[in-house]
């Protein structure tokens, strides 16, 4: 009787799908990578006070004063109101007078977030001319 030799099975790893795996990894990292984008509220400060010759006198009607105290309470021309009301009131005022300058006066002992909140509300209301000051 003829004895058949056992055929040696070649141990091969299938490599046809490695490109799929590589592209899958590439696409995964491309879509999930999140870059830290800087975002914030932009503002242009007035030039230093030495240039007083360039100072422009504003008409009283064109200035509105927003005050933020140390507790974060806000007032518009000495009338206390909420941040939401402030936004609505400023929106109306800016629409009526586009040259309106808003003076945002924040207490030195107030927290930074209250000033940012007020500035954000003013920006949302469409105010362009904002000046910052403190006591």
């Amino acid at each position: 009787m003829k004895i058949r030799r056992k055929k040696k099975v070649l141990g091969e790893i299938p490599t046809s799908s490695t490109s799929d795996i590589a592209f899958l990894l590439l696409v995964f990292f491309l879509t999930t990578t999140k870059f830290d984008v800087k975002q914030g509220l932009g503002l242009v400060l007035p030039p230093p006070s030495q240039e007083s010759a360039k100072r422009v006198r504003l008409q009283e009607d064109n200035i509105v004063r927003v005050l933020v105290n140390r507790d974060g309470r806000v007032a518009l021309d000495e009338e206390e109101l909420s941040y939401h009301e402030l936004e609505n009131r400023i929106r109306v005022m800016v629409r009526e007078n586009p040259d309106l300058v808003i003076s945002l006066r924040t207490d030195r002992q107030s927290r930074y977030r209250y000033m940012v909140e007020a500035l954000d509300r003013l920006r949302s209301a469409g105010a362009e001319k904002i000046s910052l000051s403190t006591n």
């Binding site: 800087k38 914030g40 509220l41 400060l45 007035p46 030039p47 230093p48």
Partner: peptide, 14 residues
């Protein structure tokens, strides 16, 4: 910043 004439500022926020 004003004294340095660095007038463009930004307040980072989330």
């Amino acid at each position: 910043l004003r004294e340095a004439n660095a007038l463009r500022v930004s307040f980072e926020a989330k």
